[in-house]
């Protein structure tokens, strides 16, 4: 990742459902090497905002732009420059963890896969079907899948869901280490995770 810097910028993001305004005119930008937290009550539009930032959903108004600032170029279609996961991103139940990983990537090196599995304490479980995983293991796999391709922008929706105390500790140290070289955007209501973030906004 060294030497390459990405920038993600939100301008005037507004989301409406019918006449309900969920959020209005949000402006912020962040670059690789920093982290950003989005907090707020349930239904305040955190997940929607993250989906918009990840390019999965279009906002009612405003725009999100991605740029490779080391080359000074805007990137139009950047789906593979973004790692996204959330509670609705479900791996295939009938496949093993490793098969899910190969499906999501296809080109991640074996060493990277091994180190991610080790980091999230899933080594030894990679040949089990996801059907037999506990919800905490599934959540750890979600984060592996999001970061698998080493994307410069990592967008995580409630990454601590279903994790026990040790799982949360692993997650925090992992996020701490990747935010040195990536732009990390979190939606969370966990105080300890919020502390990791340099900046943030509160919705609702």
């Amino acid at each position: 990742m060294t030497g390459v810097r990405y920038r993600i910028e939100a301008r005037g993001l507004t989301q409406r459902f019918g006449r309900n305004v969920i959020f209005k005119n949000l402006n912020f930008a962040l670059e690789t090497g920093s982290s950003f937290c989005i907090t707020g009550a349930n239904g305040s539009g955190k997940s929607t905002l993250l989906k918009i930032l990840a390019g999965i959903q279009a906002p009612s108004d405003g725009s999100v732009t991605y740029a490779d600032i080391s080359r000074g170029a805007l990137i139009k279609e950047c789906s593979s420059c973004i790692g996204y996961t959330g509670p609705l991103v479900n791996p295939y139940d009938d496949l093993t963890a490793l098969e899910n990983i190969y499906f999501a990537s296809g080109r991640a090196e074996k060493s990277r896969i091994d180190s991610l599995l080790k980091c999230f304490h899933l080594t030894g479980h990679e040949d089990k079907k996801i059907r037999h995983y506990s919800s905490g293991m599934k959540q750890r796999l979600r984060i592996i899948l999001a970061d698998l391709n080493d994307p410069p922008i990592l967008i995580l929706d409630e990454p601590g869901t279903n994790l026990d105390e040790s799982g949360r500790r692993i997650l925090r140290s992992y996020l701490d280490s990747v935010s040195v070289e990536k732009a990390v955007i979190l939606a969370t209501n966990d105080r300890d995770e919020e502390k990791l973030c340099g900046r943030g906004i509160r919705l609702g």
Partner: peptide, 25 residues
């Protein structure tokens, strides 16, 4: 890093690989 650049600009080859991955899945 070179790997990522390649993927960001996924061309025809990237399409074929995606199709094969999805088919095998």
């Amino acid at each position: 890093m070179t790997g990522m650049k390649k993927n960001c600009a996924a061309g025809g080859y990237g399409l074929v690989r995606e199709i094969l991955r999805n088919l095998s899945k």
